[in-house]
Structure formats: structure tokens, C-alpha cells
Nucleic acid binder design. Structure first.
Ligand code: MN
Ligand code: MN
Ligand code: MN
Ligand code: MN
Lengths: 220, 220
DNA sequence: CTTTATTTTTAGATTAATCTAATTTTAATT
DNA sequence: AATTAAAATTAGATTAATCTAAAAATAAAG
């Protein structure tokens, strides 16, 4: 069973939206997430239903199937491996990889992905801290908490970002909040949810709730 | 001006056929070379004509334009750089790279190709001995002669193969005729055009005219 | 110079992916 | 419960790439 590039993109979007814990994934959500029109989504849902990667009853909603999950995770695996390649080997900045990986993830060759994985030394996380599924679709995820939800005096290590937009990533570069940085919450402002943190025991940083909620921390 | 994947494939085929020194490139030739039907080719020729990558007058024939050459060489450059990557870095065999490179050549990102080129140390030839055009489309080609056209006692070095099919390349692997091998023509059979050669001053090899005509040698 | 063969193009369909506009269904408000 | 609003689907077009079958143009034979 092989999917087209468009089908892979839809399925990936559906998988991501499903994982976000929402009760169910709406046609509009999908349309927004892949920048297309709801009418196109309806059409594609019917096709994905026929291919049995989702269970779909019109107007009722959809559910991704086990087969669908497996295929989505394969695409995600490829996407993230290519991101590691671009950053580690070709020295792309972490905000420059997304578009290219979006294309590379659709290259069809199991040998290629096996070899790439080995070449990169079987990485477990991509440049944004997201876990790379293994070839069977198993994901080893770490328990993570959004920075804005930590309490004062708690410490930890930045392990991932929720938002991978170039604007956000470049902002993090600028303020020195990189993946792997050790942080500690110094203060929280009740009023607007902004936080003050200590980075690597030397630099203090203020950030809005909006920013903090997009930074994921492994608590220590 | 951007081309679709299909357009890039057609243009590449047209460029290769044009270079083969034929008077002109026929619709049927193109169809055969990319495994499609002449009717589809006619249609595409009209489109490529409109995009001015070829000059096309129906029934009369076509001529690739300067713009067309430039774009074709860009795709060929990408194809060959990826082939080098697959062989040098991911340890693909030289007969395993073609299909994958056929997909990778369509990835759109100038940054990616610049970085890949640098990462591979600006290779000048691909695993099959074909020259890699620079970013401006300049090709530094070496004077080469088909092995079956050499005379007895002449020597040289295998620098490329004309046929890149897996079957042919695996045959060459088996008999030990690799790119870079130093050879000398020991004997030629007038009757069927087959040749006997000495490889690396230690191994003698018989090969049919058909095989020899697909091996290109830099004479010394 | 006709007739035949070959090559090339057109006509008409098909499949995939997308859109706008209209319709239908479900959800929310009075 | 009736009306309005929102969400989802369908209808009908469009663009790209392909195919088969038919027609037209060119080339080759006689
Ligand atoms: Mn994609
Ligand atoms: Mn990522
Ligand atoms: Mn290709
Ligand atoms: Mn090659």
C-alpha cells in the first residue's frame, strides 16, 4: 500500500492533530494545518478512508487506524532523520531545515533511510528535540513539561520546542535558549504568566507566557 | 521560472539525447527514453515550447534553448551530486543509486545543493565517471574513447561507463573492471569486435564488443 | 509521382489534487 | 422548537500528467 505525497502530508497532519490530545480532529483543523481548503480535505478524507488509513464517516469525524499510524510515523521518521542530516552534516541552522525536510520525507527508498539512520548514528531526537520513531514506529518519548507550567525554583533541561517556526527558533538562538540548556525558574508573574529563568547558571532571561509555553523541559 | 518534476525529467532526457550528437531529437526517441507514449511527449513538447526551454515547431522537430540547457544541467548536477553522496557517504553500490537519485534530483533548495557540494568536497565526477556540472552549468569533460575503438597495445584508464543499468554495472563489478582501473588492449577479434584487455597489469579479461563499447577510456 | 508506411499530433478519457460556490448537516441561540 | 450560525460535504471547474484510438503530416517505396 503506497501513498501519494499529498496523502502522506494529510496523514501526517492528521496524526499530529490526533496526538495533540483533542477529542477529535476536525476538517477545519486539518485544512488550517496544511494550508488548504476544507473542501479539499473532505475529498481527501474519503480517499484516506478507502485506503483504510483512517476510519471515516462523513459529518461524524475520523479516527486514524493502526495502519495509518504506522505509515504516518514512517513519514515522521524520515522527516526527522533528514533534519538531523541537514543540521549535523550540512550545517543548516535549526530554523532552516523544515521546508527541505518536508520534501525529502517523501523520497521512497527503504535502503536510503536505513543507511541514513546508520550514517547519523541512530539519532533518537531531531534538532527540535522531537523523538525519532524507529523503523517499526516505536517512539521513545521523554516526560516533558512546558516551561510556563513549572514552579519557582524548579530546574531542568530544555529538551524540545513546540513551535518550529523560523521566527521562534531564531528568537531562541538570539536569547541563547538552546536545546540542552540547563535552566531554573527564578520568578513567575501571576498577572501575565511571564517567567524569569536562569540559563546555564549564568544568564537570566525574561520571557512571555507565549514563549515559555512553547519550550519543553525535562525536569530534574 | 520553475519546472515541474515531469518537465524536469523530459528536459533532462531531451538534453541527453541532444548531446548524443544526433541530428535531431525525435518524439519517439524521447518517449522511449523516459518510458512514455509519443502522444504524451507531443503534449509536453508544446508546454516546454511555451516555457521557452525548447524551440518547437510541430512536425519539424525541436531544439533545446540556452535556458533549457542551463536548467537541464542544473538537474543533472543535482542527480550526480546525490549519486556521489549515496556512494561515498551511505555506501550504496554504484548500481543502486540511480532510482533514488532520480527522485532526489527534484528536491528544490539551492542552499541544499551548495552545502551538499561542499560536504562532498566539490566532486568533479559521479560514480559512473560522468562529469558534474558546476553551479553555472559548466562541464569539464575529459577526452574519452570507447574501449572497443582502441587499438592493440594502447593503454589507458577506465573513466566512465555509457550504460548505467544495474545489470551492466554488476557485471563490471564481477569481472573487476572498475572506474580508475588501468587497462591495456592485448588483442582484438576482427570477426565480432570482441577484445582482450589487461587490467591493472595482472588480470586478463575478454569482453564482447557490446560490453567494450559501453566502457569509456582516457588514453595514456 | 502515387501509394504505403512511419511518425507525429490531436481528440477524447482518466486520475489526482486543488479551488469556489452552493448545499446539506450539525451545533448553538434565542 | 424554530431560527441562525458554523462546519462539512458536494457540485462543478481547473490544471497537470498520462493513456488509447483516430487523424494528419511527413518519409519511404514502388
Ligand atoms: Mn511533506
Ligand atoms: Mn523537527
Ligand atoms: Mn527524475
Ligand atoms: Mn550517474
Amino acid at each position: 500500500m503506497e501513498l501519494t505525497t499529498a496523502e502522506e502530508n494529510y496523514l501526517k497532519a492528521i496524526y499530529h492533530l490526533s496526538e495533540e490530545g483533542k477529542k477529535s480532529v476536525s476538517t477545519n483543523d486539518i485544512a488550517a494545518s496544511i494550508q488548504t481548503k476544507p473542501a479539499s480535505v473532505s475529498d481527501m478524507l474519503r480517499k484516506l478512508g478507502e485506503k483504510e488509513v483512517i476510519q471515516y464517516r462523513k459529518y461524524y469525524g475520523l479516527q486514524i487506524t493502526e495502519l495509518g499510524k504506522r505509515l504516518a510515523l514512517q513519514t515522521i521518521r524520515k522527516h526527522r532523520l533528514w533534519e538531523v542530516f541537514l543540521v549535523d552534516k550540512l550545517h543548516f541552522a535549526w530554523d532552516e531545515v523544515h521546508e527541505v525536510a518536508e520534501q525529502l520525507e517523501h523520497i521512497q527508498s527503504t535502503l536510503l533511510i536505513e543507511r541514513l539512520d546508520a550514517y547519523l548514528n541512530y539519532p533518537k531526537f531531531d534538532p527540535h528535540g522531537d523523538p525519532i520513531p524507529d523503523e517499526y514506529g516505536d517512539v521513545r518519548s521523554r516526560p516533558r513539561i512546558a516551561l510556563n507550567e513549572m514552579n519557582i525554583d524548579q530546574g531542568g533541561q530544555i529538551v524540545a520546542v513546540k513551535d518550529s517556526s523560523a521566527a521562534f527558533l531564531r528568537y531562541l538562538d538570539k536569547v541563547g535558549a538552546y536545546i540542552g540548556a540547563r535552566i531554573k525558574v527564578l520568578d513567575k508573574v501571576e498577572f501575565d504568566g511571564s517567567v524569569e529563568i536562569l540559563v546555564d547558571q549564568k544568564k537570566t532571561l525574561f520571557m512571555s507566557k507565549d514563549v515559555a509555553s512553547n519550550i519543553l523541559v525535562l525536569q530534574s
